[in-house]
Amino acid sequence: MREAIDAIDDRIHDLLMERIERVLEVGHLKSVQGNVSPDPSFYRPEREASIHRRLEARHRGPLPKAALHRIYREIISASLSLEKRLTVAYLGPEHAFAHLAALKQFGSSCHLRPTVSIDELFHEVEVNRADFGVAPVENSNEGMISHTLDRFVDSPLSIRGEIYVEVSYAVFSGVGSTGAVRLLLGTRLAMTRCRGWIERHMPGAPQRVVESMAEALRVAREESGVAIVAPMALAEVLGCEILAEHIEDRAEEIRFLVIGRGEPTRSGRDKTSLMFTFRDQPGFLHQVLGIFAKRQINLTRIESRPSGRQAWEYLFFLDLSGHLGDPPVAGAMEELAQMPGVTARILGSYPVRAL
């Protein structure tokens, strides 16, 4: 049986090398055609989305689908790095949910750069110090993250993709049981989101709030009997036993946007985001939304924000199903642009999350 597994590994390795050769051929063709860095064609989110969707559709197990996606994420990431090693900025610190989102989308073969603010994140991409950025835009419990939306007003960047990360926590430790824990560590956010579970299951454990996961890891290495409240996705990084999982008080998910330059082509399942403003008069918003309704375009989200230019002027942010290359969406945007008093901008057409 072991010899058979070794033979399968050899075949997998041969196929991986064959795949890499094809990737290098594609990279050569791009260079011949003049598509060189920092051209965003090196990263094609619609192509990656189609790969993941196709593999999931043909997958029959017993390997979990999530594991299949992780394997191919790393294969794609390593392959892409042979063409160009991408630099991806994210809202730090390391091991925060934005870091996990960047890893989920780009894999571990890219260079991940933490930033201290959303403004810095956008700036790093705008001045080409990063190829892409990963910015939080929505929390399933708390709604839209307004600063990310506001930043699009004056930025030339567009949306290249979206990532969803489950906000799920666990207690990690090497002590064997929650009763043996002498000190419970976690960031302020982690301890807050898991307060109910901690009060019910570990009421007597001393607690300490740390500034970062890096500090929690340092303390755990230096002291005995320490447990850490951390995202479940960090299991491999922490290297500790999981004493309890899914300890968050409420199910939660964070949506992130991949920001960059360029426009992905159609993947087959796409979303378009835009922002617009219009004259303040009765019924005007109804007229705008009617443009999409008569074409049976599904609007998945609409959000309003003060424009910041003058008092009581508002910007509207809208997500809809479909790609700008789809005739109904293209027709709607053309009609919207021709409406007097309307100023509209496409923020991006990009694949609906594939994993």
Rank of each mutant, 00 (worst) to 15 (best):
Gly239Ser: 12
Leu15Asn: 13
His201Thr: 05
Val137Asn: 01
Ala78His: 10
Met339His: 07
Glu162Ala: 14
Glu25Gln: 15
Pro203His: 07
Val342Trp: 06
Arg160Cys: 05
Pro114Asn: 03
Leu103Tyr: 00
Ser81Lys: 12
His323Tyr: 05
Gly260Ser: 01
Val134Gly: 00
Ala180Tyr: 03
Ser41Gln: 09
Val165Asp: 00
His13Trp: 11
His13Val: 06
Tyr90Cys: 05
Glu241Asp: 14
Arg160Ile: 08
Gln338Met: 09
Glu25Met: 13
Val23Cys: 09
Gly239Asn: 11
Ala190Cys: 07
Arg129Trp: 12
Ser79Pro: 03
Ala101Val: 02
Gly341Thr: 04
Val153Gly: 01
Ser177Pro: 01
Val137Arg: 05
Glu126His: 02
Arg85Gly: 04
Met191Trp: 05
Arg151Ile: 02
Gly133Thr: 00
Ala227Phe: 07
Ser273Asn: 03
Glu248Ile: 00
Arg19Val: 04
Ile254Ala: 02
Glu166Leu: 08
Val127His: 11
Thr277Asp: 14
Arg218Pro: 11
Ile297Gln: 10
Asn141Phe: 08
Ala293Ser: 15
Asp280Ser: 06
Arg54Asp: 09
Pro93Lys: 05
Ala214Phe: 11
Val125Asn: 00
Arg19Gln: 10
Ser108Gln: 09
Ser50His: 05
Met275Arg: 15
Arg279His: 09
Gln105Phe: 13
Ala180Trp: 01
Thr87His: 10
Asp154Tyr: 11
Phe292Met: 07
Gly174Gln: 10
Ala102Asp: 01
Leu183Tyr: 12
Val134Trp: 02
Gly325Cys: 06
His246Asn: 15
Ala130Asp: 03
Phe278Val: 04
Ala244Thr: 01
Val209Gly: 00
His201Cys: 09
Ser173Lys: 09
Pro203Phe: 05
Leu347Lys: 00
Ala235Gln: 12
Arg353Ser: 14
Pro231Thr: 05
Gly283Thr: 04
Phe276Gly: 08
Gly341Met: 04
Trp197Asp: 00
Leu185Arg: 08
Lys65His: 03
Thr300Glu: 14
Leu318Thr: 04
Gly204Thr: 06
Gln338Thr: 07
Lys30Arg: 14
Gly322Phe: 00
Gly143Phe: 04
Gly196Asn: 11
Gly196Leu: 07
Arg73Gln: 10
Leu315Cys: 09
His286Ala: 15
Met17Phe: 13
Gln338His: 11
Thr300His: 11
Ala244Lys: 06
Tyr43Ala: 01
Glu138His: 12
Ala220Glu: 15
Ala96Val: 05
Gly34Cys: 03
Ala330Cys: 10
Thr300Phe: 05
Asp319Ala: 02
Lys84Ala: 13
Glu215Met: 13
Leu121Cys: 10
Pro156Thr: 04
Phe172Cys: 12
Glu25Ser: 15
Ala4Asp: 11
Glu253Tyr: 09
Ala230Lys: 08
Ser155His: 06
Arg345Cys: 01
Val165Gly: 00
His99Ala: 02
Val210Cys: 10
Pro327Arg: 07
Pro340Ile: 02
Arg200Asp: 08
Gly196Pro: 03
Gln281Asp: 02
Arg70Lys: 12
Ser117Thr: 13
Pro93Asp: 03
Phe317Lys: 04
Arg269Leu: 10
Gln296Thr: 12
His201Ala: 09
Val342Pro: 03
His111Lys: 13
Gly283Gln: 07
Lys84Val: 08
